[in-house]
């Protein structure tokens, strides 16, 4: 069943070198099943922003201005969030209706959703940008509050369906969570499973870039508080 509208946190145009090849427009949708302690877009779930609901055609009207940039640079739309796959029925409707634009559609997802939601979009997505968080189950759960098994099984399923060439695994270096080379070890583990494209990068403190809500700060403290206490003990 089609979703009536997509709740939008933001639409950001003319992005280069950030969300896929060429010139892209990032469409951030509302809602997320995870509560990553250093979430870069906490407004997608902390209820500080009402969001705006767009129909399939309304979304197209918002993004069509960059048609020439998309076509000339092999760019297009990147669906992010929040977790865009919470709205997979809408995304499917949009991409089905506008696939003839020849824009490339990318997805940035944690894959922490039901298998059906993933199946909805697989035929339409050019590049899957997957936020892995952590290969280690215990750390994954501590950092995201989500179920590791859902993510991991969907990731392996996706690899079987589309092959590793269309999957970019984002491997974050998470302050206060990763010790030593744990992020690089995560990468090595994924490599053993047959993945070939990686982006290892450090997480940033969202508060250094924009105001964040008290709710987002509380969520962040779940990660920072024990680490800070441990640091204080070591110093004393």
């Amino acid at each position: 069943m089609d979703e009536a509208g997509l709740p939008i946190l933001a639409i950001q145009r003319l992005r280069m070198t950030t969300d896929g090849t060429g010139v892209t427009t990032l469409i951030c949708s509302m809602g997320c099943p995870l509560r990553c302690r250093l979430c870069i877009n906490p407004a997608s779930w902390d209820k500080t922003v009402p969001g705006e609901i767009l129909s399939v055609d309304e979304l197209y009207e918002r993004v069509k201005i960059d048609n020439l940039y998309f076509l000339t640079t092999n760019g297009g739309l990147t669906f992010g969030g929040g977790e865009p796959l919470l709205h997979s029925a809408f995304l499917k409707s949009f991409m089905e209706k506008y696939r003839e634009t020849n824009w490339l559609f990318n997805l940035e997802s944690s894959l922490n959703v039901s298998r059906k939601n993933l199946d909805d979009v697989i035929p339409y997505i050019h590049d899957f940008i997957i936020d892995t968080k952590d290969f280690n189950e215990e750390r994954y759960k501590a950092y995201t509050g989500g179920e590791y098994g859902i993510f991991f099984e969907n990731l392996m399923y996706l690899k079987e369906k589309v092959g590793p060439d269309r999957i970019l695994l984002r491997i974050p270096v998470i302050p206060f969570l990763h010790k030593g080379n744990e992020a690089e070890e995560n990468r090595a583990e994924f490599e053993k499973l047959g993945f070939t494209r990686f982006d290892v990068f450090p997480y940033v403190n969202p508060e250094n870039r924009k105001p964040i809500s008290e709710k987002a700060k509380e969520n962040r403290e779940i990660l920072l508080k024990p680490a800070k206490e441990e640091l204080a003990k070591e110093e004393s």
């Binding site: 070198t17 950030t18 969300d19 090849t21 010139v23 760019g75 270096v173 080379n181 990068f201 450090p202």
Partner: peptide, 25 residues
């Protein structure tokens, strides 16, 4: 004319704690 997705960031040369408190502003 438009660069592609940035490749791997060499995590080994970045101190994530320093980056967390001092970077990205």
């Amino acid at each position: 004319m438009a660069a592609t997705v940035a490749g791997c960031t060499p995590a080994s040369v970045i101190d994530p704690i320093v980056e967390f408190f001092g970077g990205g502003i």
